[in-house]
Amino acid sequence: MKPENNPDELIDRYLRDESASPSPGFTEQVISCTRRTSTISRFTKWILPLAACLAFAAVFMDLLKKDSSQPEPPAPVADQFAFDDILLLAEPLDETSPLLDEETLELFALLSE
C-alpha cells in the first residue's frame, strides 16, 4: 500500500502538522514578554514586604504615641451624667416662686401665726 493510501500514514501526517509554525518574531516577542513579567515580579517581590513593614511601623508608632501621652481623665460614669442633668434642670427654677394652691397657702398662714 502506498503511503498516501495508508490511512494511518495520512492521519499521522495530518496530526504532525509539520508545516505549521508561529509567526516570525515570535521568539523576540516572548523574550520581551518574559523580561516584562520578571520585572513586575521582582518589583512585587520587594514592594509587598516594604508595604508590610511600613504598615507595621505606623501601627507601632501609634502605640508608642499613646503610651507616652498624659493619661486622659476617666470617662464619666452613667450616674454622674444623671446627677448633672438634674442640676441643669433645676437651675432655671432657682429664681422663680413656686405656684402654690389655696390649701397650701392657708397651711403656710397657720404655721406662720
Binding site: R16, E18, A20, S21, P22, F26, T27, V30, I31
Partner: peptide, 15 residues
C-alpha cells in the same frame, strides 16, 4: 539560553 530554548520548543508546542 532562553532564546535557544524558545527556538527549540516553539514549533512542537505550537503544533
Amino acid at each position: 539560553a532562553l532564546t535557544l530554548l524558545i527556538n527549540r520548543w516553539k514549533n512542537p508546542l505550537f503544533r
